[in-house]
Simulated scan of single mutants.
Amino acid sequence: MARRRQIYEGKAKIIFEGPEPGTVVQYFKDDATAGNGAKSGTIIGKGVLNNRISEHLMLRLKDVGIPTHFIRRLNMREQLVKEVEIVPLEVVVRNVVAGSLSKRFGLPEGERLPRTLVEYYYKNDELNDPLVSENHIETFQWAHPQELEDMQALALRVNDFLCGLFAAVGITLVDFKLEFGRQWEGDEMRLVLADEISPDNCRLWDARTNEKMDKDRFRRDMGRVEEAYQDVARRLGILPETGNGENVTVESMQ
């Protein structure tokens, strides 16, 4: 589609003005960052894969009644989404100990949590997205109590569905980050799932070997980052295979 006015550029995506009122276009970049920009690089083909993976997961979530901002994929790197007012919170859902949770409490990575843990982080790169409590959120009015309750309920529903979806293709959903947006229709407002769901913001491990299949491979200089993203897409049935069983290149995805 013709390039439109740029509204915002983040670490992984560029947001453009949409073709219709109330819409914007998300462009998925190959840029990769870690540590809130302390480390940066490029993962070749990441934008194409994340666009397709997020499209697939958003559509599957919509099928089970989860409201999202997703409208349709436009091309290899762009998708049309509803314009929303982003709630300034990252909602992190954890099923297995990993990442910052392991560091904060000295727990071994890979230990399954006795119950699903939901955490909130204030979206502010300059402050390194600090962990916050529900009291912080209500005190600083980042979200109203009912919104907070709705976000947690939706996050747990998303978790239940995605855990099953990934388990069916031999992947453990360790943890993931969600963002929500306020969608206004006149004076009416409802919360919808926004941003993306991809190996950029999910920790995905092979269910048999615990091999990492997400951005941790970039964060920790483990190598084979592109192959890991491709493997996730292949298992989800997004990335086609050649007759001899090997993955085709990202460029051949439609």
Score class of each variant (00 low, 15 high):
R4Q: 11
A12K: 11
K13W: 09
I15N: 05
G22Y: 12
Q26L: 15
N36E: 14
G37F: 02
G37Q: 04
K46D: 11
G47Q: 10
L49N: 08
L49P: 07
N50Q: 07
N51S: 14
N51Q: 06
M58T: 02
L59I: 15
L61R: 09
V64F: 04
V64S: 08
I66G: 12
I66F: 05
T68R: 05
L74Y: 12
R77E: 07
Q79G: 14
V84K: 10
P88V: 15
V92N: 02
V96T: 15
V97A: 13
V97K: 08
S100C: 04
S102T: 07
R104N: 05
F105G: 09
P108N: 09
E109S: 11
V118F: 00
Y120A: 00
D129W: 00
P130F: 04
P130D: 04
N135F: 15
I137M: 08
I137Y: 12
T139F: 11
T139G: 03
W142P: 02
P145R: 14
M151Q: 03
F161C: 04
A168F: 03
V169F: 06
G170K: 12
G170R: 13
T172A: 09
K177G: 06
G181V: 06
Q183N: 05
W184M: 12
G186M: 12
D187G: 15
E188Q: 11
R190V: 00
D200Q: 09
D206K: 13
D206M: 11
T209S: 14
R217T: 01
F218S: 10
R224E: 15
Y229K: 04
A233P: 05
R234N: 02
R234K: 09
R234E: 12
R235V: 12
I238Y: 01
L239P: 02
T242K: 12
G245L: 07
G245D: 03
V250R: 00
S252K: 01
M253V: 14
